[in-house]
Amino acid sequence: MAQDNAPVANHAPLLWGLAFVVAMFGTGFGARFAGLDGIWTMIVMLPPMLLLIPLIRSTERDGNFAGCSSPALKRYNRRGLIWSFSYVAALFFAISVNDWLKPEGPLLWLIAVLPALPIVYFVWGFYRYLVEETDEYLKMRYVTHALFGLGLLLIVATVWGFLESFKVVPHVESWMAVPVWAIGLGVAQIWHRVRGS
């Protein structure tokens, strides 16, 4: 019987992912500890963002090797890079304009909404992936991961919301929804890998 090329454990995506999370949180906490303002915090967090490139490349290489890659998934990953960097750029721009111009009225609304636009693109990219993916197993797997992320988000938001109502914990901005969902997605993907499916 022809060889099935059983996948060999490749830890590169996991290590790059770990490096990305540690670098992002590390610089974030470091900036807060050093008392940096919004702009400088953004600037020091740019280099860790670049770790997204090797992370996505290693994930794609791993996917090709493990036989779980598809053209739709590659497009989804490309869009992921676009929205991630657009998000940082939009946030940087919005904070800068807000600090320098102190806008009011409609301009303030526009500046405040600007960082959310890449997230709209991200949601559209997610929808496009589900439309474009022709491999039903990969699609089912991704939907399962996304639902796990959604479940985590609902639980965390509800529990935190009540804790906040009873003044046990501080307020957390609602834009944290996407990072929490993404953490859930990542955990589900790692869990699938560990189970060998």
Binding site: M1, A2, N5, A66, G67, E136, Y137
Partner: peptide, 17 residues
């Protein structure tokens, strides 16, 4: 004498499928 990859290619799905 097909590998999983061979079958996947013929079915136009991923080998994981």
């Amino acid at each position: 004498d097909w590998s999983q990859g061979d079958l996947a290619e013929r079915l136009e799905v991923s080998r994981q499928s």
